[in-house]
Amino acid sequence: MRALVHAEVLKLRTRTAAWLLLATLGLVALTIGESVPKVGDPNASVSLDDPGLLAGIVGIGFGVPEVLVVLLGGLAFTQEFRYGTITSTYLGEPRRTRVLVAKWLSLALASVVITIATLAFSATFGIALISSRNGEVTLATQFWQTAAAAFVVMAAYCVIGVAVGALVRNQIAAAVGVLVWMLAVEQTVTPSFPAIGRWMPGGATDALLQLGPELGLEGKLLSAPVGGLVLLGYTAAALTLALLLTPRRDVL
């Protein structure tokens, strides 16, 4: 299994992946920057002295990386089907569940790297932002909770991404599906119909990251632990489906 994971890491280390990571950090800056005007605005739902402010900024910063890991996870299989390398991958390891697990592990490693980079980046950015407006920087419990939750969310999302790719196989269909779902469907449903949206993976993630106040959905999301459980439920479902179907399908 170590050899398989190593091979998967080699596949990930491409120029495209590096660019995606850079682009993501740029977008993280934009996302946080977009929330700048709201910081310190007397009408904002979160005040400058709120102990949850930094946690909120950091949590908001994960909006883009979440999408990135799902897309990156999706590439793990769709790229192989697109270029026909899946044949040599399965010839090397005909027990396909092992290939699936190796891809999950390699992406989990990648997600840890992305999570650390995003955390460091958005925390620095957030602290600079708050201090520049003479706010009080507090590394409250909530900050650490959100930071820990970010690792869980990112790991869950890469598992879901790999599973989506394994099931859909077609690269464009998988990428478009993921983008439409995460950026359009969830972004519309969660604010408008929180009663439904909070049960979706995105709503559950917002709950786990405790983003209710930042998103103006205070009290409308699930509690953080329940949100976490719902997200893990989706992850388990994706995992099971991929484990069941991948070994049975013909590779043509």
Binding site: T14, T16, Y83, G84, T85
Partner: peptide, 10 residues
């Protein structure tokens, strides 16, 4: 096998 390939960027 036919249709077995390689990533063009590698």
């Amino acid at each position: 096998l036919e249709a077995s390939g390689c990533h063009p960027g590698r």
